[in-house]
Amino acid sequence: MDNRVADITLNKDEMRLWGSLALQGIDNAMSGLATMVNREIRMSSLSLKQVPASEAPDLVGGADKMVIGIYLAFEGDATGHLMLVHQPDVALAIIDMLLGNEPGATRDLNEMEQSALGEMGNIIGSAFLNAIADALSLRLQPSPPEVILDMAGAILDVAFAEILQQTDDVIVAETSFGTSDRQARGTFLVIPSFNFLKVILSNAGVEK
């Protein structure tokens, strides 16, 4: 029982492994997006962190700030889930790209914007998960992604409810990306479930 809290703490090698997988996942997600908008999309940064769960909402502006979450569950060789969270500003910028609007043209999330967002969530979420499944030769069947617009804390609770049964920290990947002429600035968090991390590490040959 006592060592469970330390269980999720990743050492340098494990963090590097998760980083390289997250990178492949995000890369694949970006190619999916690029195909959708028919433009090149580049990732400008990726950073990996282990943070106390209570501080995670601050990475996307604070617990009561409206953010967009993409939630994917999966089953197959393993079950688990993955949460991608980003700020509305990022989403609005991406929607501008998706719909071919001038930068800054999209200011609200009406039906068309929400549907574009859902489509984007679908692509990013499943491409990310598939890349990791392929890299590890795992059969992971993702659920249809669920796209949620709500307060950051409320959305993160979905991921936390599982992770915090085991630990008080969460592992996040933070990234920003864009096309050659504009960047979707802001934070894009990837939060793997405790089970997911365990599966990844054991299938990559790191015993946990």
Binding site: G69, Y71, A73, H81, S143, P144, E146, I148, D150, A154, I155, D157, V158, A161, E162
Partner: peptide, 12 residues
């Protein structure tokens, strides 16, 4: 609240 609607994870 249950922020997620999909019936993917019973326990959560």
């Amino acid at each position: 609240a249950s922020v997620i609607h999909a019936a993917t994870f019973d326990g959560l």
